[in-house]
Amino acid sequence: MPTYVIGDLQGCHGETVSLVERILAREAERGGEPPSILFCGDLINRGPDSLSTLRYVQALAQGSAGRIDAVLGNHDLHLLAVANGIRPESGSDTLDTILRAPDREALLHWLRHRPMAILRAGHLLVHGGVLPQWTAAQTMALAGEVEAALRSEHWTGFLAEMYGNQPDRWDDDLRGAARLRCIVNALTRMRFCTAEGVMDFKMKESAHADPATGLMPWFEVPGRRTADVTVVFGHWSALGLQVKPGIIALDSGCVWGGQLSAVCLDDHSLLQIPCTQYRQAKIS
Rank of each mutant, 00 (worst) to 15 (best):
E33M: 00
E33L: 12
P34I: 02
S36H: 15
I37D: 00
C40T: 12
C40V: 13
G41L: 07
D42L: 04
D42A: 06
I44G: 00
I44Y: 03
N45R: 04
R46C: 12
G47D: 06
S50E: 02
S52L: 05
S52T: 07
Y56T: 08
V57K: 00
V57M: 03
Q58Y: 04
Q58I: 10
A59T: 13
A59C: 04
L60A: 04
L60S: 13
S64N: 09
G66P: 03
G66I: 14
G66Q: 00
I68L: 01
D69A: 13
A70I: 09
V71A: 04
N74G: 08
H75D: 10
L77Q: 10
H78D: 13
L79P: 06
L80E: 05
A81I: 10
V82I: 12
A83Q: 07
A83H: 04
N84P: 06
N84K: 12
N84A: 13
N84R: 14
G85C: 06
G85Q: 04
R87Q: 13
P88G: 11
P88M: 02
P88R: 03
E89R: 12
E89P: 05
G91Q: 13
G91F: 07
D93R: 08
T94K: 03
L95S: 09
D96A: 11
D96C: 05
I98G: 01
L99M: 06
L99P: 11
R100I: 10
R100M: 12
R100Y: 13
A101Y: 02
A101V: 07
P102S: 05
E105N: 14
A106Y: 00
A106M: 10
L108E: 06
H109G: 14
L111Q: 07
L111Y: 00
H113M: 07
R114Y: 00
R114H: 04
P115W: 11
P115D: 01
P115M: 10
M116E: 07
A117D: 02
L119S: 08
R120C: 04
G122A: 09
L125I: 15
L125D: 04
L125A: 06
L125M: 06
H127V: 09
H127N: 12
G129A: 13
G129Y: 00
L131T: 14
L131F: 06
P132K: 11
P132M: 04
Q133H: 15
Q133F: 13
W134N: 09
T135H: 02
A136I: 07
Q138E: 15
Q138F: 13
T139W: 01
T139I: 06
M140G: 08
L142E: 10
G144V: 08
E145K: 10
V146M: 03
E147A: 03
E147S: 14
A148K: 15
A148I: 11
L150F: 02
H154P: 01
W155Y: 12
T156Y: 05
M162W: 01
Y163D: 04
Y163R: 01
Q166T: 15
Q166H: 15
Q166C: 10
D168S: 15
D168I: 14
R169G: 12
W170R: 02
W170M: 03
D172R: 14
D173T: 15
L174M: 09
R175M: 08
G176K: 09
A177K: 07
A177T: 09
A178G: 06
R179M: 06
